[in-house]
Computed example of a mutant assay.
Amino acid sequence: MTRRACVIGWPVEHSRSPVIHRYWLNEYGIDGAYEKEAVKPANLGRFLEELSGHGYVGANVTLPHKEAALGAAGAADAAALAIGAANTLWLDEKGALHASNTDAYGFVTNLDAEAPQWNEGVGLAMVLGAGGAARAILYGLLAAGVPRILLANRTKAKAEALARVFGPQIEVIDWDERAAKLSACGLLINSTSLGMTGQPPLDIDISALPGSAIVADIVYAPLLTPLLVEAAKRGNAVVDGLGMLLHQAVPGFERWFGVRPHVTPALRAHVVATLGET
């Protein structure tokens, strides 16, 4: 029997999840399908209640449904509960809805792949932004053993609220302090949409950043954001956002289709082609 999964969002056309999962279905010769489902927020609860009736064994969840999807699930893993949102859902053998959040896994696994031993001696990291992505990244960094994290957001109160969730290892700094505080950082992460195609640029002077520091950006359109271009010119190791997108998809695919897929250069090239990048 063909197993089917989908990505749920409003809107959903921008999602690259079908490109990734359909590639793997073809790669591993699996009798499966992966669709897009545009679901209005008011209709999400009913859609999830009828997920099996729609023919799905599970789903990815994108904006604006991640928090509501967590609330609709009967069970959730530690990551989803800590992050406060779900991006991966599945039905168990009794039809109960389970939720996970694989964004932290995707981010850290991408760091592991692109900057091996990144967390040996990082000491201090800086995260820019305080949205859902930042929440997942903070969870992942703390789980990976990063001892201290500076958090800067344009709206400081939002960063302070996030820091209260994760505890004293998170130190909130003013947005205007971010450049001056880089001198002690071994890892700089942009978790905002600044620098994305169509968005304002991320304005930050990284001249104080140590040459040994790693710079990561969750933006993947463009693949090399102005932040990463500048960091690479200085000789810093850089990690783009596409790998996070690819790696976060792995646990869901395994859950729905029974095969743990691999993130390969061929998959990356396939997805890059759909982004219009060269």
Rank of each mutant, 00 (worst) to 15 (best):
residue 1 M to K: 03
residue 2 T to Q: 09
residue 4 R to V: 14
residue 6 C to M: 05
residue 6 C to W: 01
residue 8 I to Q: 03
residue 11 P to D: 06
residue 12 V to Q: 03
residue 13 E to Q: 15
residue 16 R to H: 07
residue 20 I to E: 00
residue 32 G to E: 02
residue 32 G to D: 01
residue 35 E to P: 06
residue 37 E to I: 14
residue 43 N to Q: 12
residue 45 G to H: 12
residue 46 R to M: 08
residue 47 F to V: 06
residue 48 L to T: 05
residue 50 E to R: 15
residue 54 H to Y: 05
residue 57 V to G: 10
residue 58 G to E: 07
residue 61 V to P: 09
residue 61 V to K: 00
residue 64 P to C: 01
residue 66 K to T: 04
residue 67 E to W: 09
residue 67 E to N: 06
residue 68 A to P: 06
residue 69 A to Q: 02
residue 72 A to W: 10
residue 74 G to V: 13
residue 77 D to I: 14
residue 78 A to S: 14
residue 79 A to E: 13
residue 80 A to C: 03
residue 81 L to S: 11
residue 87 N to K: 11
residue 87 N to C: 03
residue 87 N to E: 07
residue 88 T to C: 14
residue 88 T to E: 10
residue 91 L to G: 04
residue 94 K to T: 14
residue 98 H to I: 09
residue 99 A to N: 08
residue 99 A to S: 10
residue 100 S to M: 05
residue 100 S to F: 00
residue 102 T to G: 12
residue 103 D to P: 12
residue 104 A to K: 01
residue 106 G to N: 10
residue 109 T to H: 11
residue 112 D to R: 09
residue 113 A to H: 11
residue 116 P to N: 08
residue 117 Q to E: 13
residue 122 V to H: 05
residue 123 G to I: 02
residue 125 A to Y: 04
residue 128 L to C: 09
residue 129 G to M: 08
residue 133 A to E: 00
residue 135 R to S: 05
residue 136 A to Y: 01
residue 141 L to W: 01
residue 143 A to W: 00
residue 144 A to K: 13
residue 145 G to H: 03
residue 147 P to C: 07
residue 151 L to T: 07
residue 152 A to L: 10
residue 154 R to K: 14
residue 156 K to R: 15
residue 157 A to K: 13
residue 159 A to L: 06
residue 160 E to L: 13
residue 164 R to T: 11
residue 167 G to E: 12
residue 170 I to E: 01
residue 172 V to Y: 09
residue 173 I to M: 05
residue 174 D to S: 15
residue 178 R to L: 13
residue 186 G to D: 06
residue 187 L to F: 07
residue 192 T to D: 04
residue 193 S to F: 00
residue 198 G to M: 05
residue 201 P to K: 00
residue 201 P to I: 00
residue 203 D to H: 11
residue 204 I to C: 06
residue 207 S to A: 15
residue 213 A to V: 15
residue 224 L to H: 13
residue 225 T to I: 12
residue 226 P to E: 01
residue 236 N to G: 03
residue 239 V to W: 08
residue 241 G to I: 13
residue 246 L to Y: 00
residue 248 Q to T: 09
residue 254 E to K: 15
residue 254 E to W: 08
residue 255 R to D: 02
residue 256 W to F: 10
residue 258 G to T: 13
residue 259 V to T: 07
residue 259 V to L: 04
residue 262 H to E: 14
residue 268 R to D: 12
residue 272 V to I: 15
residue 272 V to S: 11
residue 275 L to S: 02
residue 278 T to W: 00
